[in-house]
Write a protein that binds this DNA or RNA. Sequence first.
DNA 1: GTTTGCGGGCGGA
DNA 2: TCCGCCCGCAAAC
Length: 505
Amino acid sequence: MPADAAQDPESPRRMALSWDINDPQMPQAPAHFDSFQEWPDGYVRFIYSSAEKKAQRHLSGWAMRNTNNHNGHILKKSCLGVVLCTRACALPDGSRLQLRPAICDKARLKQQKKVCPNCQSALELIPCRGHSGYPVTNFWRLDGSAIYFQAKGVHDHPRPESKSETEARRSALKRQTAPFCQSQKKRAREPEVGENPDSSGQFNNTSLLGNPELFNIIPDTSFCGPGQACPSFPNSDIYAAPCDLATFQGDITSPFQKYPNPKIYLPRPPCSYDLAGPRYTNPSPFPALYKESTSILNDADWLRLNALQYNLNSYSSYESSFDFTSKHCGWKPGLENLGLEEKTDHRQLQAVARCPYYNPELSCRYQEPPSAGGPALQTVITTTTRVSYQAYQCPTLKHSANVQEELSSLSSCSYPSENTPVSTCAEAADPLSVITRAASPTGRTSLKILEDCAVNRTPMAFPQEAAPCRTDGADPCNVCLSGLGSVISFSDRAGLLFSYDSEEF
DNA sequence: GTTTGCGGGCGGA
DNA sequence: TCCGCCCGCAAAC
């Protein structure tokens, strides 16, 4: 999005600054519509073309269910949250289970009765409380040639599997099980045939990887974005393979989503509690970068995207000249309490969703819903927070003068990261990611982001983005933000991805 | 079987 | 009155 979007009278964003979904009269449709946002987060508004298929279907990466608002002209949906393993077990790839809650109540209940396919523990539905303690709500309104979208609230939970990803995986699973059954049947019928051990019907990574069919499970590769199944990453199938299919039911988030999207669930620093503004950066994944990529991203790209995942959307929603720090450091009340003008300003702020409290050390990773009137999200002050904060001052960051500046700034401004992805900092300190970027089809965009960060980054980023202290090393990305050693670990992961990508694919 | 949209109805603020 | 939420229904996939 051009930096001068705010000055462009035709800019959808500028247009968006002057309307509310409940307005009797919506603004005239802009000449240029917003590109579809699969993961809207925060108090944002977009104007899509009525020809936009995804907008027509009111799609969202988040698991949104229809909510009756008794207004036939405005479709309202509320977020269901995400389904996690109660033990927060680490998947083989170090990621965590993040299932997409079934939209249908009945299906969701059924889903919750299942167990974690990884550790057999119970599954837990983490409700969304990102809107003053209530689920984040999305509103859709068709008006003329435009589809107006407005989101209220900042998701306080990890991203679930995207719908497209879920569908793709299920489709892939179906493809897997079909040949499997056929194979079994065939073997039953013709036991003397097919002695090839590779065709024994056993699921294994090798066989799956070698199955080109699995690479064609995505119906629409152009929409292959983070959090979504990607043809180059059939891992979801790979992962699913060894699981009990009856239990699995195709609900595991693709490890490749994890790789590119190692959601970093971090405790919020104390300051964020009081500020109650848009908290920290959006773990949110998936920058709109994928939209610009016509080719399949490799693992390293995913990793890089992930590193930049925080707030790329925010960047796209902000004017580059936006003085974020001065604008937001003083936020006190909940967003809903802001005056109209303020609303107008921040409603464009793509969510900077704060990271959910995903502390594997705690049985209750998510806090109780905030009390009425209180911030939607509570700060979790744990030792991990402190450790993470210290970790942020990791020597690795000395590679970046900007980061150093931010470090010093942090001491003067405790405002939680709003716009600057800590991940970006991490990436800045990670040569590998730079290399990766260079080789990425979206490299240009990423560089732009990075440059923007260097110029505009405000001292916000870190505290809340600090990764929780982990000792199991299961999530290198988390560790990455926690210290130098972690960075090495992170690089290792990246390297692993590289080799994985090159060798396996 | 699940998703999606719609709408009635209830309770709380 | 607004909002969140539950429920049931029907159409579509």
